[in-house]
Measured scan of single mutants.
Amino acid sequence: KLETFPLDVLVNTAAEDLPRGVDPSRKENHLSDEDFKAVFGMTRSAFANLPLWKQQNLKKEKGLF
């Protein structure tokens, strides 16, 4: 399991300012399950079932792209 970080560490943070080991294209993977659901309004599995373009739009909207 990946290390999780608080939302404010990941949202609207440039790649070079992210904690070590965080993939800038997969910031959402480093949210706790609770934060993930609070941000996206759905579970990880529901998010994973969305088309890629919709996932990317949601990530942009939430500052996690």
Rank of each mutant, 00 (worst) to 15 (best):
L52V: 14
A14D: 06
K59N: 01
M42K: 01
A48Q: 06
M42T: 05
A46R: 07
P24H: 04
E28C: 03
Q56M: 13
K37S: 11
E61F: 00
K1W: 03
N12S: 07
S25K: 13
D23S: 04
F47C: 00
A48T: 12
N57V: 10
L18Q: 08
K60F: 10
K1I: 02
S32N: 09
E28Q: 01
D33C: 07
D35R: 01
E3R: 11
L7G: 08
E3S: 14
V22R: 01
S32P: 02
P24K: 11
K59D: 02
D23W: 02
L52W: 11
S45N: 13
G63W: 03
G21P: 06
A14C: 11
L2H: 12
N49P: 00
K60D: 07
K59Y: 04
S32L: 04
T4R: 09
K59Q: 05
D33R: 03
L52Q: 11
T4P: 06
A15N: 15
L50Q: 06
Q56Y: 13
K1G: 08
S32Q: 07
A46K: 14
N12G: 09
A46S: 11
K54M: 12
N12W: 02
E3D: 05
V11H: 05
A38T: 08
E34C: 10
Q55T: 01
F47Y: 07
N57R: 11
D23A: 03
R26E: 10
L64H: 01
D35K: 01
E61D: 07
K27H: 09
E34D: 08
P19E: 05
N29V: 09
K1A: 04
K37Y: 10
A14R: 14
E3Y: 14
V22K: 05
R44F: 01
P51E: 11
G41I: 01
K37M: 02
N12I: 01
A14G: 11
D35P: 01
L10P: 06
M42G: 00
L52D: 14
E16Q: 10
F5I: 10
A46C: 12
A48Y: 11
K54E: 14
E61T: 08
F36M: 03
K62M: 07
D35M: 02
R26W: 09
P51Q: 00
N49V: 10
G63V: 03
